[in-house]
Every structure is written in C-alpha cells, then in structure tokens.
Design a protein around this nucleic acid. Sequence first.
DNA 1: GTGTATATGTTATACTATATCAAGACACAA
DNA 2: TTGTGTCTTGATATAGTATAACATATACAC
Lengths: 163, 163
Amino acid sequence: MHTVGFGQHDHAACVGSGLRAAESTCAEHGLRLTKGRRRVLEILLQEHRAMGAYDILSILSDEGYASQPPVVYRALDFLVVNGFVHKIQKLNAYVACSHPGDEHTPVFLICRACETVAETTASLKATLGKAATEMGFDIETTVVEAEGLCPDCKKSRGSGDTV
Amino acid sequence: MHTVGFGQHDHAACVGSGLRAAESTCAEHGLRLTKGRRRVLEILLQEHRAMGAYDILSILSDEGYASQPPVVYRALDFLVVNGFVHKIQKLNAYVACSHPGDEHTPVFLICRACETVAETTASLKATLGKAATEMGFDIETTVVEAEGLCPDCKKSRGSGDTV
DNA sequence: GTGTATATGTTATACTATATCAAGACACAA
DNA sequence: TTGTGTCTTGATATAGTATAACATATACAC
C-alpha cells in the first residue's frame, strides 16, 4: 500500500514530480495541459491540501488571470477527468493526486479538525465489485472518504472536540 | 450481506417499518421525533430515492409547512446524525436508511443514468480501519459511494451513454 | 411556575457550480 | 494561406446548496 499523508515529505520534489507526471501523461494522450490548467494543478500541488474552487480562483485572480468561476471549474474538470486531481466530496474541495499515473481507486482520510487530507489506497475494489455484481450493477467510479482525527490533532487535544 | 436496491420490495411495509424504527430508537434515546422531522423522514421513505433538500422543502411548503431552507436542513441534520437518513455526497441528496437500527458503514451504488440509489453493506470497515491505523488516523465516519449503471439502465440502453 | 434546554420561525446571506453565447487558438488539409 | 473543424477561453448571468444570526415558542425537570 502506498500512502502520502500525515508525515513528512520532500515538498519541492513532489510539486515537480506531479507537474512532470501530468506533462508526460498529456503528451502521451494528446491532451493539452494549457497555462491555466497547469497553474491550477501547480497551486494544488504547492498548497498540498484540499482547496475550494473559489480559494484557487482568488489566487488566480491575484495573479491577473481571469477571475470568473468557469475558469477554475473548467480547469478542475480537466484535471479531475484525467486523474491529476481528485474531488473531496465531503469538503466540496479539490486535492492534487498523490500518485498520478497509477490506475487507482483512491481512499481519503480527512481530519475533521484541521481538514488535512491524506490519500491512500486500500484494496476495496474487489469487495465493492463483488457487492455490485451481485446486484447487476456496473461500477464506473468510486468515492471512499473517511473522516476522523489525524495523529497531530489527536495529540494536541486529546479528546474529540471540534475546532 | 443485506441489500435493498434495484429489485422489488413491499413499499408500504418499508415506509411503516422505517417510521416505527425511528420512533422506537428516539424513544429509547430520549430524542424528539417532532412533527417536521417525522414528515421529512416519511417523505424520504415514501419517495424511496435520493432527494435534494429543496425537493423536500417544496413538498413541505405545498403542505403548508414553513418554506424556508433551515427548516428542512435542520430536520435532515437530525435524521442524518441519528442514522435514519444518509447523505449522498455525490448528488448533494438525501436518502432514507434502508436498515436503520443496525450499526453500519453503508455503501451506496448510484446509477448515473436514473440516479437511483441502492444501499448495501460490504465489509470494508476492517480494510479501511487497517489502512487508517497504520497512519495513526482514527476513523469516525465513512462515505463509500460507487457510481455506474444499474441493471435497468444497462438493459434499456446497452451502451454507456449519458442521460 | 420558573428556569433551562431544545426546537422552530424568519430574514438575510454565503458558498458551490453550471448554462449560454461570443471570441480566440490550434491543427490539419486542400 | 485559406478554410474548416475542434478545442479552449472570456464573460455575463443564474441556478443550486447550505448556513449565520436572532427572535420566538415549546417541552421538560425541578
């Protein structure tokens, strides 16, 4: 199992490798990683957290890009469809994929206190697929999100209180 | 595994038993299943599909209840917290629980064509819990949603086209 | 019947996302 | 190079989802 989450990591490296992975995947598949799309991905990689579309939009806007919602939603749509970014349904937020390129069914662990999101993969696909097959249902995409307390927040408060 | 989904079922019975289950759970735990909360649950049981908050609100409103959003959101919040209703994150919609009373980690199968939602349970808890424990993360709630095509929609279109 | 907690009514507003139509950029072939 | 089709962006407007805040009412314990 591969995880990128509540521990330390080489951040500059992960931004660079994320962008390179997107570039090479786009080159392979004839997709256009345009300036705006690239910048949105870069922002998500840099921030390394789940961000709302309007958070991203305000950064773009500060930089002189167009500041209308469709701009960022279109970029996000492209990035999500092609697997460079995932949407966190519980937060209405977006996060850069931690291991692009791999075919994967991501599992997210969301801290309800600090809202940090860790992406991990667990082999739920077989179990889910079996349950669906029994009902004659064909699964195309899955969302798995678990909410709780991350190690840091557990430490700093002990109990289960809210922010 | 228990499922209620794309097949037939005794609908009048499921409305009645859903309400009775909520009533008895509330009685046990000193919760107040007030008129408005009860009516929202009843609507969701009757419709037997995922409904948006504003869909429910317009029914309430037609019946002479207050017609402001907080009315329905408060009722839904109560019902969700106490396990009588689940929120489908992918649809921003709410659906009555198919087997209230049981402690469960529900799994939803959502048809992208007709938006029918089936609730099933698959034993993902152990797998998820293990992944989380390895990272020092305490899971409190989980969301598992799979989107695809239900048996009926597969039959009636064959291919994978959208609505 | 008084105090306390819980629930509801009401107004206003915040947040999230998409429809629509016009204009520009790019690829490719005649 | 001009035309043609496709993909992308610009811009305005609007739809859809959800909550803040404060006032009032109801239920329950003592």
